[in-house]
Write a protein that binds this DNA or RNA. Structure first.
Lengths: 192, 192
DNA sequence: GTTTGTTGATTGACTAGTCAATAAAGTCGT
DNA sequence: ACGACTTTATTGACTAGTCAATCAACAAAC
């Protein structure tokens, strides 16, 4: 029963299925057939809409980054004061959303892909720059070197995230948030 | 012209070739034939010595961790005083050795594998615990909560490493070291 | 009747792992 | 010193399976 106007629906279903499938495998080692089956269509149709497997993977990564960006923007909108804005960013980075296995898998494999794929490298740079800009804006009125503070906190966020994501014992995000925020406090104490 | 006593030589050659091949591909998506060819033997011989591709990969990862451990130990041996020991660890983590493309690739894929492989997860935990113990020992006489300081610096090291490893512009390790050490200084100032 | 949606079947390429066969080196009884 | 047997090293050929991508063909909608 072919209906018209399926393209956006199919594409969205494929992106969702790709993310899910990557999460289950833990790697990019997923077949187009698996993805297509989960999305409820034939693999030929998946190729029809995306052209190649690579483009499916890129679309999935882009989607995750889009959601992440929206989350940060939403958190920032409600924050008040410089420290409030910084805290909002940190909390957004460690939201439950970002610890779902498929999101963790996407991030880790994103790093791997960034070594060889220019598209992935570009996306990663966009994410980093946005985070840096937001953090720096928050630090501007608090420390003498906001660039340095933003760089430090950005790296700390990445490091804590990876450690949390790969912990054997599931640990609360609160610990991650408080560890980073404690460090933020130290930075502001010394920076003025 | 089969010679006797080839096993250790062949195994070492295969481990080296595996690391190199992973570095070139940027992922674990390398074929046994590629590895064997680089190591100067047939794929059948590679299977003969390692049994399976997985075991080659594990051996390669283990080898990289072994080298890393030796590097840290060596740096620690020459360091004096608590701050000296911490600095030695940080410097070892950001040595040129660790930024060679094949080592970067190994680490990133190591993270990916840790999601699903118990062997990888175990190895990663050993690395983390050793780093934590060493850092905590250095911090013991410097701060009130050495555990917390070690955790923070450990995460910061991981985060800075990933960021440096994936930078488009090749950047000096010195920047990484100084960023982390600056943070160490802040920790010690506030901790007493 | 042209555009859009859809799939089963197929192709072509590649891959991990096995196996039988060959060859040198070592062992040992004589 | 010598043949017989064993162990170790080594590979080409093969198996059995996988997977991305293509294509021809059919169905609905416009």
């Amino acid at each position: 029963m072919p209906k018209v106007g399926m393209e956006p629906i199919r594409r969205a279903a494929l992106v969702q299925a790709t993310i899910h499938e990557i999460g289950e495998a833990g790697s990019l080692d997923v077949t187009v057939s698996q993805i297509a089956r989960r999305a409820g269509m034939s693999s030929a149709l998946a190729h029809h809409y995306f052209g190649s497997k690579d483009q499916m993977l890129v679309a999935a990564m882009r989607h995750i980054l889009t959601i992440f960006g929206a989350e940060v923007r939403g958190a920032l909108a409600m924050a008040q004061g410089p420290t409030g804005r910084i805290e909002a960013i940190v909390r957004a980075c460690f939201s439950a959303q970002n610890f779902r296995p498929e999101v963790v898998a996407a991030w880790l494999n994103f790093y791997v892909q960034s070594q060889t794929s220019d598209a992935a490298k570009r996306l990663l740079r966009v994410y980093r720059r946005r985070l840096h800009t937001n953090l720096r804006a928050g630090f501007r009125s608090l420390v003498t070197d906001p660039d340095d503070a933003a760089e430090t906190v950005g790296a700390l966020i990445d490091g804590v995230y990876i450690r949390q994501a790969l912990r054997a014992d599931a640990l609360s995000q609160e610990d991650a948030v408080s560890l980073v925020l404690k460090q933020v406090a130290r930075l502001t104490d010394n920076g003025r």
